[in-house]
Design a protein around this nucleic acid. Structure first.
Lengths: 346, 346
DNA sequence: TTGTATGCGTTATCAA
DNA sequence: TTGATAACGCATACAA
């Protein structure tokens, strides 16, 4: 039955001997058109195999019905969960989703923003690269007042909403937990501190040390790219040190896992000699032995919230324009890798 | 400098006192327009803050410059790698990418296809849900000869290309490996056999048994949803059995990991008493102890190949229209979890 | 090499 | 409640 020619509202109108205006209205479910004609129109539309031409519609109405998302990497457990959440909302709300990854490159991020702008997305979600220090390249959106929301990796700005967790608090709690377990020399593994996520966690770490009167030691802060391999690498470094740490708090689970396993293989007792904590509650953390103490926060929820908020903005919800940031819940998950104390009771 | 009004080719034409036709040509880098005027046009376009209106352009040219991808789940390591690969190619080739997830639901998948069709994607990539038994719902694409490529989870069909790995062979090899390690009672954990990926693996498993004169036992094939939890669940079941298996080949790493850990916790020696193998080379497999023997195949590569092939189709590469399927490389990765033999030598 | 004129399929503004 | 008609911004056949 399928034919090569595309059916338009013109064809429907002709067949039904009515005007295209009425057809257009009926297809949009405009309450103004008579119920009976509406039904007739919709039926024949279906029967003729009509599909609306979004280009024409968008051109005329100046709306794209599309939202965009730019992420540093697509293939991490956290990010793919975020995208899954965003997609589910976008889909339910009838928005298309276009995705772009910056691959942690500022240049790429800039290009992605341009692409999104040219595609006339009605709103944009973005999680920044590790090297993004300002958001001038988002000015096209800000100037045109196109809703723009940063999530997770963000930069404070006046013109929009950020969706984050309280990284400082989470890091404080996890560090304090390590201290309470008896750690006195806690190493922190992080990456570029240009990024709020990591600088906040470092701050939380420092605050916990301060509260418990432990002197902050610069050399205990290690910078890496937070991969499993980086963790392994660091482990060999640690093994060469005279004064080994008695606790390690890594800024993600992959890196913690790599480091933990390498140290364990070298005969270090975990958590006995070195207690461990990570961040993200990656599936890895429940598989590694000992199970990894970590901070849980749901990428899916963050995606859902981000998409919902963005769409509310697009639809002109004014109560939101004053919202500067939304802080999502995160929780400390204590597992075996950090239990120095309880270990002896077992 | 940004203003509320959108600049069009009209504005540029007016300013430069030339026709919109020339402007349009220049912006498309048409070789027919004089170099000098072209430069002038492009410069003032930039200066005026012009951005092309894709809707008008698409409407006129009847091309969307967009490809679509439908996946069962976004948030698995494998799938997010695929998407990462697809995105990188789409981006480089100047195509937009719109993404939809079916959440393993056939109903959702059908809706996603309709959405993609209505959005007039120029080509579609899809990995089917576990319950998809035929591809009638893709007929809109097939009838209109819009390039359609299935990857990983596919159904054989005459009108298009499938991109897969040789699941049968991979499963055969991994099963044979277990047999060579001395397993005589190998359990296979799988899920819906409607899906090529899983039925092929089961076949490979059977063939290996057959080759080595091991009788196939129906009760050793377990169906589950292949999550970590399902693996744990199965472990408790196995522990209650009188005749435990001496090897387990699970159709993905998560499930293998859940099962392995639960059995290990119950005091079963891995691989001594039960050898283990998974599938996918998920990061989990390198973290679990013992490290998991598995099959590696790159989601990123599959994404890249799928996108490249699709775009070639779109561009009318005829050499491809005869290509029925592309089989990507996969490799057996042997790790500690399956080494029953070598274990004793250590 | 450039310009004129037309149409792509909608939506929106009138008027009926 | 419906209809006639003018945009929306661009690409292209044709003419110059």
């Amino acid at each position: 039955m399928e034919n090569d020619k595309e059916i338009t509202i013109w064809d429907i109108a002709k067949k039904l001997n009515i005007s295209i205006a009425t057809v257009s209205r009926a297809l949009k479910n405009d309450p103004v058109v008579h119920k009976k004609t509406k039904k007739k129109i919709i039926d024949t539309a279906e029967q003729m195999g009509y599909r609306t031409n979004n280009f024409a519609s968008n051109l005329r109405s100046k709306k794209s019905n599309t939202i965009g998302i730019i992420v540093p990497r697509l293939n991490s457990f956290f990010m793919s969960s975020v995208i899954s959440g965003v997609e589910s909302i976008a889909n339910a709300e009838g928005y298309n989703l276009i995705i772009s990854q910056s691959s942690e490159s500022l240049v790429q991020e800039k290009e992605s923003v341009v692409t999104m702008f040219n595609n006339r997305v009605e709103g944009l979600l973005a999680s920044l690269t590790i090297e993004t220090e300002n958001i001038d390249h988002f000015n096209s959106f800000i100037n045109k007042k196109i809703p723009l929301i940063f999530f997770d990796r963000v930069i404070e700005h006046k013109k929009g909403t950020n969706i984050v967790i309280d990284n400082k608090k989470a890091a404080f709690e996890i560090t304090e937990h390590l201290i309470n377990e008896g750690c006195k020399r806690i190493m922190h593994i992080t990456t570029s501190l240009k990024c709020n996520v990591y600088s906040d966690r470092l701050q939380g770490y420092k605050q916990a040390l301060e509260k418990h009167k432990i002197e902050f030691t610069e050399s205990l802060v290690k910078h890496s790219d937070l991969t499993i391999e980086a963790g392994e690498q660091l482990a060999t470094e640690i093994l060469k040190t005279k004064k080994m740490p008695d606790g390690i708090f890594a800024s993600n689970d992959s890196c913690a896992a790599g480091c933990l396993l390498a140290l364990k293989k070298a005969g270090i007792k975990i958590p006995g000699t070195i207690a461990f904590a990570g961040f993200n509650n990656d599936p890895l953390s429940r598989v590694i032995e000992p199970n990894l103490t970590t901070v849980n926060y749901s990428g899916f929820d963050m995606g859902v919230t981000s998409a919902r908020t963005l769409i509310a903005h697009i639809k002109g919800d004014t109560t939101l324009s004053s919202t500067n940031s939304i802080i999502l819940r995160s929780e400390l998950i204590i597992r075996e890798s950090s239990l120095k104390q309880q270990k002896s009771k077992k």
